[in-house]
Design a protein around this nucleic acid. Structure first.
Lengths: 203, 203
DNA sequence: TGTACATCAGTGAACGCGCGTTCACTGATGTAC
DNA sequence: TGTACATCAGTGAACGCGCGTTCACTGATGTAC
């Protein structure tokens, strides 16, 4: 990556400064001015690379969705050929992403960005969801045709419980954490899969 | 409720103004100044009733937890004597609360308040959680002793999936909503309970 | 009951602050000859 | 290779704004006699 005129890749430096701010102080803690300061640059310089505050934040989220989609994809593929293993791996990947990329995660899901205002953001977000849908689709093929719930419903369930675990138990927002987040998600999805008839009833 | 000197119960009027603001524009949309304006009062007047911005926000959350705990309690009692019905009712009550009291819900879970800084808030929050724990406790009594998961884990699972459904599918934050939030939570908990062995395997 | 006084909820003006954004500029870098 | 020029990333100063908070005040309400 070639060095630019003065700073050298200020665009990405701003993205990373924003990430650090969000990870440290929450999505509210991010301001254009502070990100500029962290990148050792005047606030006005930001406007050479982004249309404004929201565009910078959206770029952070966009990169997050890219990484997210890639991680889910990778986890899914690593779990094959068993649909069950692939599905469980995507669940674990969700939580791993939230833990490893807290700035991205918060920019994506807690920053109050309107997905409608950033079409490319909606697109890359849909890609991540498609991966999870695909994992669920493969999963339900293992069920007898009569009791085969819609795949999109299953992925919505897993998405919801994963997000809930992240919000309530990965960070401290839900008061004291009775269980490690990973264990909570693992056991929760385990019970759920048994409920679908995909795991044997004995623990 | 007696009318005060000038305004008459400004304290509660401010709480309700804050609720309306949060419900309309999200937890970020709440400012002390705008709440004061909505209550037709000078910003400085707020300081007759609250130590500052955060104290007002905390009071909103506190009242939310009060309502929340009462709703869960009521739903739980209404579902008795069947532990299963009581448990399912608390799950439904969670979502009903989030839908009916969006301002409270966001103040409680999305406003970035530190529970540690407001001890009474932590206390009333614990009360709500205790109700859910109790419902889970009664539930696991129906299981053979060998495969009886900890009640606090079950309630954490349900709390997580409920919160996730609210965040992703009750509001528009997760992109397009494939299913109504209520259906999603109902079916999700249904599958989960079957996984626990508390519902018969046939749909 | 009437009057003098005390209380204190809400006012209005002011504060310092950090925010996002704009604008004319400057000077290092890249390029054409 | 050396020089003159064009480009354009980043500067520095300024803006208007709304924020939370403070302070001396005022005047309606409640109370004591």
């Amino acid at each position: 990556m070639k060095r630019g005129y003065h700073h050298g890749n200020l665009r990405q430096a701003l993205v990373e400064a924003a990430l650090a701010l969000i990870a440290e102080k929450g999505p509210q803690g991010f301001t254009l001015s502070e990100a500029a300061k962290a990148a050792e640059v005047t606030p006005a310089a930001v406007y050479r690379h982004f249309a404004g505050r929201d565009e910078l934040l959206a770029e952070v989220a966009r990169q997050g969705f890219d990484i997210f989609a890639a991680l889910l994809e990778y986890a899914h593929d690593a779990g094959r050929p068993t649909p069950l293993a692939a599905f469980e791996a995507t669940g674990r990947a969700y939580l791993a992403f939230a833990r490893k990329y807290p700035g991205h995660y918060q920019a994506m899901f807690e920053s109050g960005l309107q997905p409608g205002k950033h079409p490319d953001l909606a697109q890359v977000s849909a890609k991540a969801r498609a991966t999870m849908d695909r994992a669920a689709e493969a999963l339900v093929q293992g069920l007898p045709e009569g009791r085969r719930p819609p795949a999109s419903m299953i992925s919505a369930h897993v998405w919801a419980v994963s997000h809930g675990v992240v919000e309530l138990f990965l960070r401290g927002n839900g008061g004291p954490q009775p269980w490690p987040a990973e264990d909570l998600l693992e056991t929760g999805i385990g019970v759920y899969l048994r409920g679908l008839g995909l795991l044997s009833p004995d623990r």
